[in-house]
Design a protein around this nucleic acid. Structure first.
Length: 309
DNA sequence: GTAATTTGACCATT
DNA sequence: AATGGTCAAATTAC
């Protein structure tokens, strides 16, 4: 049951991988109607399959993924979970905030229902929320420093959402980042209300996936970043197209009744895919052709983005 | 002056 | 002792 779903995800995923760059190229340069339609069809297939597969995984996580996500989060294996504010657990919050000094990972916290999930993206700062950087650390075995962020409104609302961004060592262009979120937002802060408004207008390609390019500079770290480890990340930010998307969490609320919302290239692939060469794509497809699909970073992005919560 | 970022130090965990 | 996550003073930008 779970295997079938995963297989379907894999199949559709492969189709998109192989054809997406071409579709993007032609549809953008020629506005070719049939090609655009094909792209939409493919993406619709992906939505359908992923929704099916992930819903199954949700019900039978062990069967579907060979034990992918324990509820208790361990540092080395962050849980993949939808970034929904609803996932924030106030109970977990209490334990972590008691600051009679400096506190953090307590055994109580680990035993609680603290939510955590990861996302792989080329645009780690564009997730629909405002973040304030509070630390940076060189992590063993990595070439890049890890940056730590907390919700900008933590002081005002007590929101305990945090995330850390780790640039991956792979020499991809654009660079890939692993973003690990801890705790959902409880601040109800959506500075992207304008984004929502925009999307409600002319297009319904909303959404999907705040992973890629919701751009309104929600993460305010680059404006004053004067170098150091953030330099590379600033480069990423500058690549953002002026397209606004709602926070990633929004996708989880979308109904999925067989007619998924249409979406543009930005959703699954991110604008960055346009940059991939055919060789890159071949490599990616090749790399993902194995059995370990669930650990393919790009599939992670898909899963994180589409998962029905 | 205010707010955000940087960065070394601190602390819990392993 | 090593490591990772957070704090907070200093620095920087607006």
């Amino acid at each position: 049951m779970g295997e079938g779903a995963v297989r379907e995800v894999a199949q559709v995923y492969e189709r998109i991988k192989i054809q997406h760059p071409l579709l993007l190229h032609y549809s953008s340069s020629h506005h070719h109607q049939p090609t655009t339609q094909l792209a939409h069809n493919l993406l619709s297939d992906a939505l359908r399959a992923l929704n099916l597969a992930l819903s199954v995984m949700k019900q039978h996580p062990a069967a579907a993924a060979g034990s992918v996500t324990p509820r208790i989060v361990q540092a080395a294996e962050p849980q993949i979970s939808p970034p929904s504010p609803a996932s924030a657990d106030p109970q977990a919050i209490v334990t972590s905030t008691a600051r009679s000094g400096k506190r953090r990972r307590s055994s109580v916290m680990l035993e609680g229902k603290k939510s955590s999930w990861v996302n792989f993206t080329t645009v780690p700062y564009e997730d629909g929320y405002e973040w304030r950087k509070y630390g940076e650390k060189k992590i063993n075995g990595t070439s890049y420093t890890r940056s730590y962020f907390r919700c900008t409104y933590k002081d005002d609302t007590g929101c305990l959402a945090t995330k850390h961004v780790q640039q991956k060592d792979c020499n991809s262009d654009p660079p890939m980042f692993q973003v690990t979120y801890n705790n959902g937002h409880t601040c109800k802060n959506f500075t992207t209300t304008t984004a929502a408004n925009n999307n409600s207008g002319s297009s319904n390609n909303l959404a999907l996936i705040g992973c890629c390019n919701s751009s309104e500079g929600v993460t305010k770290i680059s404006s004053r970043n004067n170098g150091h480890a953030g330099a590379a990340m600033n480069n990423i930010k500058q690549e953002q197209p002026p397209v606004l998307l709602p926070p990633i969490l929004e996708i989880s609320a979308l109904p999925f009744d067989g007619k998924p919302p249409s979406m543009t290239s930005s959703c699954i692939s991110g604008e960055s895919w346009d940059e991939y060469s055919a060789g890159d794509m071949a490599q990616i497809a090749e790399a993902s052709a194995g059995d370990d699909l669930l650990y393919d970073p790009e599939l992670f992005v898909l899963c994180t983005s589409f998962k029905v919560y």
